[in-house]
Design a protein around this nucleic acid. Structure first.
Lengths: 219, 219
DNA sequence: GTCTATATAATGATAGAC
DNA sequence: GTCTATCATTATATAGAC
């Protein structure tokens, strides 16, 4: 399978290699991508890849650093005014530009390694402070466990990215098109505005059950 | 890294190989697992693995079929009374028994291949009919797009499984312990009962915006 | 059915010329 | 900096004995 990627020729070789690696790692995974394939996509020899980055693992670390800067360093992106889900949607909308990085990001987080854990924890931190300020402003409801709520909201924002392929196919589409993203907006906001349940029966029952048995001990 | 797995000796060799493969594929991924490792875990020679399943890919397909039966075939599991999230929590609670299959399931769905797409579509189908019957019963609020809502709820149910490692670490834990799962219950139900937003400002704005510009055209 | 031994291909990495 | 040529390792898969 050939992956065509428009690598600008005016970039320096290490930059072209890094871009090609991010695109291929994101599309096929780390194990599923060979140094040879990266070299071919970047228009260089396999030896040059290892000359510049020491090893395949070294190249991965360079890609990780690049992604960390892209996600954490930018002023744009996550602000306290936009929640993660809508930011995600903006990113997904600008497909051509961000897709390779986003696919790489998704794989890194799902892989569960050190970099993925750091990135996700950072997203949760941002979400938590965003929710805190919006709660203070009366926009967001207070939570019984703000950190956990932030983690849950963060995962919800990442889900369209992580489950992109199967999600699209379950809705009769082939990829996560911008039309599909638009279609997700309203149901997501409905859920985040009114909840899923019609009343608080389930929540009340769970609350009572949890208070009745704090940790298998009687009060 | 050694993965200890208690494979009962009384199983037939193909069954032991299949179980070992599911555990290793789930833990390390398909590419990250060699036929040798599977053979060692099952206590047989590498050649026997290929003798019984033809190829590594054939073994994967056998594992896929097994998982499909486990997820789709059971009477237990998903019913119209339990939503996906709570079913997920029950499964995660019975760690020792279901973990290998669940990890394999998560990887299969994230991979986005044919099997993963089928499995996820099936989960969405089940969620959709569950939501429909519960909406009719007045338990669940009606949605403007039931299929999409079902897809969203299904992804939310899979999140603890798919993002297990990073989710746990962002909350100061190392793995998705039962304590962490318990801690997720209340915030999740709060979100599903009252929503995240304090009022319908955001939803109203989005609804107006979407109606105002159906697809970049003026009304 | 199960094994040992081996074939064959691909991979990450190195050496050394230019 | 960049290449060609090559090494050493590992992978899947096969052949054939028992």
């Amino acid at each position: 399978m050939l992956i065509m990627r428009s690598v600008p020729e005016d970039l320096t070789a290490p930059a072209r290699i890094r871009d090609a690696a991010i695109a291929l790692f994101g599309a096929q995974g780390y194990d599923g991508t060979s140094v040879r394939a990266i070299a071919a996509a970047a228009g260089v020899s396999p030896a040059l890849v290892l000359h510049h980055f020491g090893s395949k693992e070294g190249l991965r670390e360079a890609c990780d650093s690049w992604i960390i800067d892209e996600v954490m360093g930018r002023k744009e992106g996550l602000t306290t005014e936009h929640d993660l889900a809508s930011t995600m949607q903006e990113w997904l909308a600008d497909t051509e530009r961000f897709r390779p990085s986003l696919d790489y990001l998704a794989r890194t987080i799902v892989d569960g390694g050190e970099t993925g854990a750091r990135l996700f924890a950072h997203l949760v931190d941002r979400t938590e402070s965003m929710l805190a300020s919006q709660t203070e402003a009366g926009i967001v409801r207070p939570s019984s466990d703000p950190r956990m709520t932030a983690a849950i909201v963060a995962t919800h924002g990442l889900v369209p990215l992580v489950l992109e392929r199967v999600l699209a196919r379950s809705l009769g589409d082939t990829g996560l098109s911008s039309a599909l993203i638009a279609r997700m907006t309203l149901p997501t906001l409905e859920l985040y505005t009114h909840g899923l349940y019609a009343d608080s029966t389930v929540l009340d029952a769970a609350t009572a059950a949890l208070k009745g048995t704090p940790s298998e001990g009687a009060p």
